[in-house]
């Protein structure tokens, strides 16, 4: 921040100028400290400290047959005990094949859903970007609209369509294609469908943003030089839209990995996902330490690599803009 510039020659004016400069500087400092302090303190208290508490409790032991609140006191007292049990919770996660399977399955479901979103979303984004400006606004609004309506209700809408006496099965049976209802609901298929459906807008928007900015004269030049459309798409359009592909994929992959609502409402007993496991450990088993250990493992395996990736990406874009 630059203070007022002092250009006056008279000594009184000079002094006044200096005074004002000092004043605005200190005021600026104070204001600046206030601006930083408020969100900083809030995030420290309600975001960072809680993560450390989760780590602490993941190192504790579950007090059997106690109400969920009371065990906390015991954990606060025994430090040495906590360190000994530490191995317990994490070893349990490692030894029980359920948890590892759930982690791997979450990664798989999120990755496959991201690819399907990309396959459906890319043509949509491309179509919107090449539409006439007035159509573009309408089409974009129709992409954004579902995002503002309730996520839970959009997932719920599929229950009515997929269940045994639901619309799809009735339609297929009415057409005589099947004799018995297909078990569509409570299956892995339904989980993929739900995730793709819910997160498709997150894929389309960043893709659109990169596609609409593209210079179309490049394609014209390629066509003039005899390049077939599919080839100019592969060599020009696709590489240039790569930032959008990456941004959209991250926006789908990240929430999909930790998803709870979709596997819970649409998935079956075999659709294990780590968000659902954590929920069940906490609400059904009331095992806070194991739930905390699951959370810590999730942070280490999924969130920290993503944060690092984002940091690298930011540094690269910052380098480019310089």
């Amino acid at each position: 921040m630059s203070g007022p510039e002092v250009t006056a020659t008279g000594s009184t004016r000079l002094r006044r100028g200096i005074d004002r400069g000092v004043k605005s500087l200190t005021q600026g400092r104070l204001g600046r400290a206030l601006v930083i302090a408020l969100p900083y303190a809030w995030l420290l208290l309600f975001l960072l400290v809680p993560v450390f508490i989760v780590i602490k409790i993941s190192l504790a032991e579950m007090a059997l047959a106690s109400p969920p609140y009371s065990p906390m006191l015991q954990w606060l007292e025994g430090r040495t005990l906590a360190l000994r049990v530490h191995l317990g919770n994490y070893a349990f996660l490692w030894q029980d094949p359920l948890y590892l399977a759930a982690y791997l399955n979450s990664l798989k479901v999120a990755a496959v859903s991201t690819i399907i979103c990309l396959l459906i979303g890319y043509p949509m984004a491309y179509g919107i970007a090449r539409a006439s400006p007035s159509w573009r606004i309408v089409l974009l609004m129709m992409i954004i609209l579902p995002f503002w309506t309730s996520f839970l209700i959009r997932v719920y809408a599929w229950i009515g369509l997929l269940q045994n006496n639901g619309l799809f099965n009735n339609l297929l049976m009415g057409l005589g294609l099947i004799d018995q209802p297909l078990p569509l609901l409570h299956s892995n298929f339904a989980v993929y469908l739900g995730i793709v459906y819910s997160y498709l807008p997150f894929m389309v928007l960043p893709l659109y943003a990169t596609l609409v900015r593209q210079d179309l004269t490049l394609l014209e030049a390629a066509a003039d030089l005899g390049c077939p459309p599919w080839k100019s798409f592969l060599t020009i359009t696709l590489p240039l839209s790569l930032p959008g592909v990456i941004a959209g994929s991250l926006l789908v992959f990240i929430p999909a990995v930790g998803e709870f609502v979709i596997p819970d409402l649409l998935g079956g007993p075999d659709s294990l996902m780590i968000g659902k496991i954590l929920w069940n450990e906490f609400f059904s088993n009331r095992d806070w330490p194991v739930a905390s250990a699951v959370a810590v493992a999730m942070l280490v395996v999924i969130v920290i690599p993503l944060l690092l990736l984002q940091r690298i990406g930011e540094r690269q874009t910052a380098g480019e803009s310089r």
Binding site: F46, W279, M298, L299, I302, V303
Partner: peptide, 11 residues
């Protein structure tokens, strides 16, 4: 980037 379940549990 944090899964909602972790935000909820930690809070």
């Amino acid at each position: 980037v944090m899964p909602e379940v972790i935000l909820g549990l930690s809070a």
